[in-house]
């Protein structure tokens, strides 16, 4: 798609509309990182299509100078699938939130992943409904108090990574809105990946759910609480790179290197390309305080995409088809002359 003379810039990617997210909203940083990634990917602007549903995050397409489609609540995966299958040359990005993708749009979300349509889904997870001013979402923790759960919720949240992998997802990554460098790297990989790539962005809502991810972004503690995964590298974390993840009794375990006879060699090496989803699922499910939270590309497995398969099938059939036009079709099969 990219030629040597073409160079996309961040400035070019901005539309003439001002981003109307609240000052301090994580969405600003996410857009910044996505724009940087697109510059790096250097996809011609006219080949970019941003599709969204409803919610704060879904206003995103209006702030980009690319092609954009602001859909209806929950349906972005379906609209984006239609766009991509209709024109596989396009680089299609779906912008969605935890309510949009996992509640009202849950069905489209899992089936798009199952089909492996070659789109990039950026899931802004702030564990709250912001646009409707503060109700709990499918990712809110049990007991969470909001306007619609004044006595606390009595339901378990979805873990997006678990859902994606359960829906046969081939690409899943997690990042934090404020970690622009890590996010940019992930969006670049997601953009390059052939298939449905889902990136969960832990996003802070300054108004209705502020500081929920502070335990992860805390200056002093973040290195101890984040595990940034890199393919083919050991799962080591901690301020002094002295902690790691091992597999014990069929479970992951966070350990201190050098204690209890554990050496660097005992630490698991991350293999994002492993087809078996077992370890990926356990990584996606790691939660504070027992574990560090896994960030980076957790899973990236090669597979056939829906859109390329459709086009492949079409080419094959058309090459040997007897019916080449509608006149042929109308006169095919059982007909008679009077």
């Amino acid at each position: 798609m990219s030629d040597t003379t073409y160079k996309l810039t961040v400035k070019e990617l901005r539309s003439d509309q001002d981003a109307r997210w609240c000052p301090g909203c994580g969405d600003h940083a996410i857009m910044n990182a996505i724009q940087r990634a697109l510059v790096e990917l250097n996809i011609p602007k006219e080949n970019l299509a941003f599709v969204s549903g409803i919610g704060c995050s879904s206003r995103f397409p209006y702030y980009m100078s690319t092609y954009g489609f602001h859909g209806i609540h929950g349906r972005a995966s379906a609209i984006a699938s239609g766009v991509k299958i209709a024109n596989p040359e396009l680089s299609v990005w779906q912008i969605t939130g935890d309510g949009d993708a996992l509640a009202i749009g849950g069905n489209h979300f899992i089936h798009t992943i199952r089909r492996n349509v070659n789109i990039n889904i950026i899931l802004f997870n702030n564990q709250i409904y912001g646009l409707t001013k503060g109700q709990y979402s499918p990712t809110s923790n049990r007991g969470f108090v909001t306007k619609t759960s004044p006595y606390g919720t009595v339901e378990e949240p979805f873990n997006p990574g678990e859902l994606v992998i359960g829906a046969q997802g081939k690409f899943f990554a997690r990042t934090i809105d404020s970690s622009v460098k890590l996010s940019t790297e992930i969006y670049i990989e997601a953009g390059r990946y052939e298939g449905t790539s889902v990136v969960e962005v832990l996003q802070n809502c300054v108004i209705f759910n502020d500081k929920i991810y502070n335990y992860l972004t805390d200056k002093d503690e973040k290195e101890n609480r984040q595990l940034i995964l890199h393919h083919d590298e050991p799962m080591i974390f901690g301020k002094n790179s002295d902690k790691g993840i091992i597999l014990k009794d069929n479970k992951l375990k966070a350990v201190q290197i050098g204690e209890n006879g554990i050496t660097k060699d005992d630490i698991l090496v991350h293999n994002a390309k492993e087809k078996n989803p077992g370890i990926h699922l356990m990584l996606a499910n790691m939660q504070h305080p027992d574990y560090p939270v896994a960030l980076g590309i957790i899973r990236s497995v090669d597979a056939q995409t829906y859109d390329s398969e459709v086009n492949h099938q079409m080419e094959e059939i058309r090459a040997k088809a007897k019916i080449k036009c509608v006149d042929d079709l109308l006169n095919s099969g059982s007909t008679w002359e009077l």
């Binding site: 489609f69 859909g71 995966s77 379906a78 609209i79 699938s81 069905n107 489209h108 089936h111």
Partner: peptide, 20 residues
């Protein structure tokens, strides 16, 4: 495109129409 439901049926159709 055999969609997962009626809504996805029309929404993929709209997406495809947007794309020409």
């Amino acid at each position: 495109f055999q969609a997962e439901d009626e809504i996805a049926g029309i929404c993929t159709t709209l997406g495809a129409s947007f794309a020409g």
